[in-house]
Amino acid sequence: MIKVEGLTKRYARATAVDNISFEVDKGQIVGFLGPNGAGKTTTMRMLTCFMPPSGGRAEVAGFDVVKSPMEVKKRIGYLPETPPLYPEMEVGEYLDFVGKLKGVPSADLAKRIQEVSERCAVADVRNKLISKLSKGYKQRVGLAQAIIHNPDVLILDEPTSGLDPKQIMETRDLIRSLAGDHTIILSTHILTEVEQTCETAIIIAKGKVMATDSVAALKNRRAGGSAVLVEVEAVSEGQVREKLERVSGVSRVVHKPSGTHGIVTFEVEGLSGKNIRPEIARAVVESGWSLNELRPLGMSLEEVFLQLTSGTKAAEHEAATAAPAVGDEEKESE
């Protein structure tokens, strides 16, 4: 449904998208995962014919974005990073306007508006001014405008950014429910978002595709070999550390100040591909301490980047320099 070959975008100063290629099949949901400035928005803008590429080709539903932009535009629904809303319009008026703009036949328009506003749960605010809506509702109206003409392809740029956890869940459910009828590309810098909504992840950083992987594989990677948080009721930090370091498969033990007397916390990293939790639990209990918490920390986006790209030294370095900011942000939002 979407075919991208060697797509490149150069700005006056920098190359934002550098020779990326990927394909998306009909009905798939693909996550575009990358840190800030990776080139996600730029790629989406080229796919939606907002701006022409500097090089390479992109095809949407069999039409080239440069040669037949009109055909592409008819088949794409696009939710930009900031929903393109007119605050002085009512929700219903706005959807009516977008429907006409997208070429929905006027005989079907009322029905379509009804359908999408029910689907995106904005039916109850049809007569409200957009300027009066909450952020979550605005985002949903943004989604409703993207699907009003029942497009083959949906392109969603950070559809859950700025929403509260409940709304994030609702939006993800909504997006999942849209798959099948539509081919969807969504961008995000949150790893769990891709895991929860998408089938395939395209990981990009600094304008390059780092990896294309199924989400199942991504999850495995994230679970395996990752760090564990251990909280133990014990007096001596040194003793616990010693014990933990002796557990087989443990590669590194880092003390985390807990602030409470009698409780010590460690971050324990294991060799990759090995589940060290049972061993740790046994070691702690055998020593007579009580185990308060034993929790896999999961891999940050940074670590996933490093893993996915290990082997190619240059890429590894780039991911390492590009990722820290993302790691932080991800932890915050979870």
Binding site: C49, Y78, E81, P84, L85, V98, L101
Partner: peptide, 14 residues
């Protein structure tokens, strides 16, 4: 300023 230009330009109108 508001970004709605993206909606207009990505719509099937010249």
């Amino acid at each position: 300023r508001s970004g709605t230009i993206e909606l207009l330009i990505t719509s099937p109108v010249t």
